[in-house]
Design a binder for these strands. Structure first.
Lengths: 125, 125
DNA sequence: CTTAAAAGTTTACCAGTGTAATCTACTGAA
DNA sequence: TTCAGTAGATTACACTGGTAAACTTTTAAG
C-alpha cells in the first residue's frame, strides 16, 4: 500500500481509529455505537465512510456486518510521517527534530528520555 | 493566524514556496516565470491561486502586480508541524521522535548531531 | 414461510480544490 | 489621447470529501 490506496481522509480516519483501538474485527453495531457517540454521525454517514474505506482497500469485510482494518495503525503512522516530512522538511527527519527542539515543542524531560534512546542506539555503531 | 485562515492547499503551497524563496515582495511576472516553469501552470491558474491566497489573508498585494507573503515560512512550518503532531501523535512531539528513531528515519549521523543539540540544551536546566 | 431489523447500495448535495478560459480595468508608451 | 499589454475579476467545470436520505437485499426469529 504505497500511497495508502489514495489516502485516508479525516472523517475516514475517525473510523480507522475505532477499528485500530480494537485488536479484533468489529461489528458495524459496535463501530456505530462508538462513532455516533464520539462524532455524532448518522448511521448512513458511517456506512458511507466504511464503503469508501472498503473501496480504497483500507478496510476489509470479514463477513456480513464485521469489519477489520487492512492497513495497520503503525503502517499509517509511518506512511503519514514520511509524507509529512517530505512535504514540509524536504524529506529530512533531522530538520524536523531540530525544528521541534528550537521551537521548544520538546521539553527538558522529553529530551532527557530521547537522549537515552539515542545513546542506546549509538552502541551498535 | 491560528488556523492559518483556512489552511494552505497543496497547489497554493507551491505558490508560497516561491514567495518564501525570495525575501522581498515579488512581481507577478517573476512568480509566473518560476511557476509556469516549475509546475507547468497556465497564467490563469497562477492568478486564481494568488487570488485564493489573498482571500485567505496568506498573501498581501503590495501594489499592483506585486505580492508578498503575510504568513511566513516559519509560521507555516510551525503550524503544520503542530497540526500534524496533534493529528497523528495526540500532541506528543516526543512520540513522534521516538517513532522516527525506531523506524530508522534518523540515521546514526543525525542522531549524533541531535544528541549534541540536546546536550547543549540540557545545560540550562 | 413471513417479516422486521440490520446491512449493504445508490443517489444526493454542498463546499472546496485543481485547473483554466474569458472578460474587464489599468497604465505606461507612443 | 489612444492603445496594447498587464493585472485583476468573473465564471467554469470536474472531482473529492463530509454528511446523509432512501432504497434494496439478507437474515434471524417467530
Amino acid at each position: 500500500m504505497n500511497d495508502l490506496a489514495g489516502k485516508i481522509q479525516d472523517a475516514e480516519l475517525e473510523v480507522m481509529r475505532v477499528l485500530w483501538e480494537k485488536a479484533d474485527a468489529m461489528s458495524l453495531i459496535d463501530i456505530r455505537k462508538i462513532l455516533s457517540d464520539r462524532c455524532g454521525w448518522e448511521d448512513s454517514t458511517i456506512k458511507t465512510l466504511l464503503r469508501r474505506l472498503l473501496d480504497k482497500g483500507i478496510v476489509r469485510l470479514e463477513k456480513r456486518g464485521v469489519y477489520s482494518p487492512v492497513v495497520t495503525r503503525d503502517e499509517y503512522i509511518q506512511w503519514s510521517t514520511h509524507t509529512f516530512i517530505n512535504k514540509i522538511f524536504s524529506g529530512s527527519a533531522k530538520n524536523l527534530v531540530a525544528t521541534l527542539v528550537s521551537n521548544e515543542q520538546l521539553d527538558e524531560k522529553d529530551i532527557k528520555e530521547l537522549s537515552a534512546m539515542f545513546n542506546a542506539g549509538e552502541k551498535n555503531e
